[in-house]
Design a protein around this nucleic acid. Structure first.
Lengths: 332, 332
DNA sequence: CTGAAAGCGCTTACAG
DNA sequence: CTGAAAGCGCTTACAG
């Protein structure tokens, strides 16, 4: 039988109410008896029953994060930022993991989170469908997509993907590259892909370069997408340089080119998007558009907190990125 | 105001008890009214309040997993195995993330899990201290370390680390390597490190080779450990081949050697321990002792289930591994 | 500073 | 097949 407040109360010769107040540091009580109560609680191994507490309080201070740890690598800094800020804000976070493109599984997770009455839900590396967003709205639970933009009706915290596409391309053009490929994402159906693609086109246009359709190779942000893109660019469509949609894609490109005897950066330049540790752990190290994922995580929970009182909608937040030159692009 | 059972009951003209039974599929009721009730629940957007439910049932079916996503890479398949099995067993899992070697943070997480009254706790990539284990025992919550062995008083599911050390060494000896290094873990203070080291010594001994102390280079399973080990083996202690304590260590070794102009496998052989996707994503691809992490995850939750009734202690389980030859060792 | 009491939303014997 | 009632362990006005 687990210890409960009543047990403490009996031993201390106090009422349940008083013990509750003391344990929660709420209301008035003498520090003297408080000490005794805490001692007793410790002695009998008391742990608050969260279900009872949450039920009585009719609220709780935990928020949920759902993410998928597949394909992409940037969840780590995101989580780090989130956990850090949650800790300083005395928030609890429970995490659940979903599979990408598993609508049913994701729905189950979301329902679970609703049953737990989390006060907010963060989506990492996942784009919730509109139907899931509707469920959340209906249940009156704030949702926030962090790490990537989305076309659906939720707020998000991410980099400016148009600018990422634009500046990555610009960077390559400035280096003197002519035929610039874009690989590893679906530039038609994926919202992020589309934004970046438009930035890419804009940069090319401003440089009076044509954006040959063949230069874009589709994919799903995975290592494997990079591998197949490398084959494509080697056998079917030559390029001077390519922009990889994620670090995984870029590593795939790097390895794929390597396996085909194409030298990077001597024969083809490469710039990656994300800038996680993978860029430092490849040889050659990869030049990248580095996103500030940790800051996104931090901001995400701050936004939630700011909303505690005001019932405004969460604003969409854009986090700055930077380009880090490493060894997969021409030195100048 | 969130919908509750009473609301449904009123609309349906039933008692709260009946609605509860229907929604949980417990007890007898007519399928006819059941249909009506479910419809109403759906219409008004009802979601069970888990706190109330768990409190009333005095139990719940969620277990917790705590892990750290740092340094090491094998949490992915582990989680995959866990989630898969949890889904088929209709179990809920909540995840919390801790930092390695953050005793205080870990304690907080464990307390949180106790407050939530999880019926079991899995530790991934983390070795809980004895004091944390004591807390858990005291709170009467089953704990299980998965992915690595531990000297503390908890059950665990892992590979046989002595055998890993032994067979990796044996493999290298069979290939004709003479001076065999062991890098990336603390073979004195880390339990896993110690086991593997003993296997390593045993294999050398059986081959009548001496285990020069200088061949072992300490570390913490990280990429960085690999980098420094490569420098060490290049400048201070020559080796024919080295065993990397994890894929991260091995990648560090590979890159470190590369940066120093040492060729793998031409000048030095390398075998990694873990066998995650990293081994396929490096160039050359890394030969590895491949552990079956996904199976460990699956088994972990199965063990929990098996214990539902019987109150036996969880047995320690050993999962088989295999050696996969790739390109960082001599071809024969 | 402390206690009695109501209530949070659900579940579960028990009785019918 | 259905309902009235007690109870899960805590919190929180309210009264003193």
């Amino acid at each position: 039988m687990k210890a409960k407040i009543a047990d403490i109360a009996k031993i201390a010769g106090l009422s349940v109410a008083s013990v509750s107040r003391i344990l929660n540091g709420r209301g008035r009580y003498s520090e003297e008896t408080a000490k005794r109560v805490r001692q007793i609680a410790d002695d009998i191994g008391y742990y608050k029953n969260r279900s009872a507490s949450d039920l009585a309080r009719q609220s709780n201070n935990t928020f949920g994060v759902v993410y998928t740890n597949s394909e992409t690598h940037f969840s780590e800094p995101l989580i780090k930022g989130i956990m850090g800020q949650a800790a300083t804000d005395k928030l609890d976070v429970i995490i659940m993991i979903g599979k990408r493109d598993d609508e049913q599984g994701l729905t189950k997770i979301v329902q679970d989170m609703i049953e737990r009455r989390v006060f907010g839900l963060l989506f990492l590396s996942i784009q919730p469908s509109q139907s899931i967003i509707d469920i959340l709205n209906h249940a009156n639970i704030r949702a926030l997509v962090v790490g990537s933009a989305t076309e659906h009706d939720v707020s998000y915290i991410s980099s400016d993907d148009f600018q990422i596409g634009y500046q990555a391309t610009q960077f390559l053009i400035d280096k003197g590259y002519q035929r610039i490929g874009l690989a590893g994402m679906d530039v038609q159906r994926d919202y992020v892909g589309l934004q970046r693609y438009q930035g890419y086109r804009q940069a090319l246009k401003e440089a009076n370069m044509k954006a040959a359709e063949g230069l874009v190779h589709s994919g799903n942000f995975s290592y494997h997408s990079g591998i197949t893109a490398a084959t494509y660019y080697t056998n079917e469509q030559s390029v001077d340089a390519v922009i990889g949609a994620s670090d995984e894609v870029s590593l795939g490109l790097l390895n794929g080119f390597h396996d085909l005897g194409v030298q990077v950066p001597k024969q083809v330049g490469l710039i990656s998007i994300d800038g996680t540790e993978l860029c430092e752990q490849s040889r050659p190290k990869m030049t990248s558009v580095t996103q500030n994922f940790q800051l996104m995580g931090t901001r995400a929970v701050r936004e939630f907190m700011a909303l505690e009182d005001s019932h405004n909608k969460i604003e969409t937040v854009t986090i700055p990125f930077e380009i880090e030159t490493r060894n997969t692009t021409k030195q100048d």
